[in-house]
Write a protein that binds this DNA or RNA. Structure first.
Lengths: 225, 225
DNA sequence: CTTGACTGGTAATGTCCGTTACCTTACCGG
DNA sequence: CCGGTAAGGTAACGGACATTACCAGTCAAG
C-alpha cells in the first residue's frame, strides 16, 4: 500500500516534516560541534530523544543524514543572498547591502558549522563539497560579478576581471575575523562590529587604501551620518 | 642511570630527529587527507612502516602527535613570511611580494592540510587553534599592519584602521580560489594564475575597483585632492 | 661476547560505533 | 473495542580503533 503523501497533509504522526526537521536540528548541533567523523548517532539521539531507528528510517545512514544537513544549510544560506530591489541603487549602496548579507550569512551558526564540518570530509564527499561551494560562496561570487558587470555596462567602473574582483570581495568577508569565529577563538561580531567590517571592506574595494579616508569617503555617508 | 642527551648528538639509532621527522611526515599525509578523527594510528603506520610503539614512545598519544604536527606546520609557514629587505621598496612592491609569499603559503600542502584538519577539532584543541591562528594568519596580519603603518608614517597613505585593512588584505588571499583548493575542487593555481591573483588583489587593495584599469594598474586620477 | 635498552611486530584489551534484528507500542480503520 | 500497520525502543552484531603487553631482533656500550 503506497499512498502519495505530497498533497494531503494528514498529520497522522507528529508530522513527518517536523520529525525530520527535529532530527536535522539535533544533528546540526552535534555534527557542527564535533565534526562528522567524531559524531556518533548515539550522541544525536541523546539530544533528540527517541531512537536510532527513526534516524535510519528517515535518512538511511550517517552519510545520508550529513549530506542532507549540509545540503539544507547551504540552500538556506543561498536564499538569503538574493539581491532584491537593489538594482536601482548606486553601486556603493548595493555593495554595502550585499556585504551586510554576506557577512551575516558567513557568521550564521549554520554556515559556520557547515564550514567547520565539511573541510576534512571534502575528500570523502566530493559532490557535497562541490554543492556547498557552488550554492554558497560560488553563487555569491557569481551574483556579485553580475552586479559589477552591470555597473561596468553603465560606465560606473572600468573593470576587466569582474569575476576575479568579485572573488576578492567575497574573500574580504572570510578574513581573519571570520577565521577566528570559525575556530571558536572569538564570538561573532556584534552588529556595530559587523557594520564597521562591511563599511571598511566596501571602502577598500571601491577606492583602495589610497582612496579611503581621502575622497568623498563612503564612511561619512553610511555610519553615524 | 639517566644520561643527559641534550648536548651530545650520539646518533646511535637512525637519529631520533630523523625518526621523528619521518613520523610527522607520514602523519601529515594521513591527518591532512582524512582529518584527525578519521585517522587511525594504523593508517599512519601503514605509510610509515615500523610499529605503533615508536609513535607512542615519541608522541605519547594520538593527540600529542596531531598537536606536534599542527604546531610544526604553523611554525614553518610563519618563517616564510619574514619581510626581509623589503622595507626600502615602494608600498606596492612590498604588497606584491608580501602577497606572493602569502599566497604561496596558503596554497602549500602543509597549510592546506592544517586548514582542513584543524577546523572541526578547534573545539577539542582550543590552544592548538589559537596557536595556529596566531602563528599563521594572525601574524601575517600583524606584519602587514606594521608595513601599512610605516607607509602611513611616511605619508604614502592615509589610513586609519591599518589593522582592519591588513585583515581584509589577508582575507583577499583566502578567497574562493583558496576555498576551492581546500575543498579539493581544483588544483592549486599555476604560477601565472597565482601571479595574476596577487596582482589583482594588490591592485584592488591599493586603488579599489574605481582606480583599477588594466592589469591592476592605477588610473591615477583620483587621489591628491 | 654479553648485557641492556630500545625498536619492530603481533596481538590482546576494552571501548565505541554504525547498522540491523527483533520486540513493543501507538495510532488507524473497522 | 479489535486487529493491522508502521513507527519507536532495546539490544545485539560485527568491525574498528587507541592503547598496552609481550616477545623478538638490533644496535651500542662494556
Amino acid at each position: 500500500m503506497e499512498l502519495q503523501m505530497a498533497t494531503a497533509t494528514h498529520a497522522r504522526r507528529p508530522s513527518k516534516n517536523a520529525r525530520r526537521a527535529a532530527i536535522l536540528e539535533a544533528a546540526a548541533q552535534v555534527f557542527f560541534e564535533q565534526g562528522y567523523a567524531a559524531t556518533s548517532i548515539d550522541a544525536i539521539i541523546k539530544r533528540l530523544g527517541g531512537s536510532k531507528r527513526t534516524i535510519y528510517n528517515e535518512f538511511g545512514s550517517k552519510e545520508g543524514l550529513f549530506t542532507a544537513l549540509v545540503s539544507e544549510n547551504a540552500g538556506t544560506a543561498l536564499s538569503a543572498l538574493a539581491v532584491d530591489g537593489l538594482e536601482g541603487r548606486s553601486l556603493s549602496e548595493v555593495l554595502l547591502e550585499f556585504g551586510r548579507r554576506l557577512l551575516a550569512i558567513y557568521m550564521s551558526p549554520g554556515l559556520i558549522g557547515v564550514y567547520r564540518s565539511i573541510m576534512p570530509e571534502a575528500g570523502r564527499f566530493p559532490e557535497l563539497a562541490r554543492e556547498f561551494f557552488e550554492k554558497g560562496p560560488g553563487r555569491a561570487s557569481d551574483r556579485l560579478a553580475e552586479v559589477l558587470e552591470e555597473a561596468r555596462d553603465r560606465g560606473e567602473i572600468e573593470l576587466e576581471d569582474c569575476r576575479g574582483a568579485a572573488d576578492h570581495f567575497v574573500g574580504m568577508f572570510r578574513d581573519n575575523l571570520h577565521l577566528q569565529v570559525v575556530l571558536g577563538l572569538r564570538p561573532p561580531p556584534s552588529p556595530p562590529e559587523a557594520e564597521a567590517a562591511v563599511t571598511s571592506a566596501v571602502g577598500i574595494f571601491l577606492h583602495g587604501i589610497y582612496g579611503v579616508d581621502r575622497e568623498g569617503r563612503a564612511k561619512g555617508q553610511m555610519s553615524n551620518g
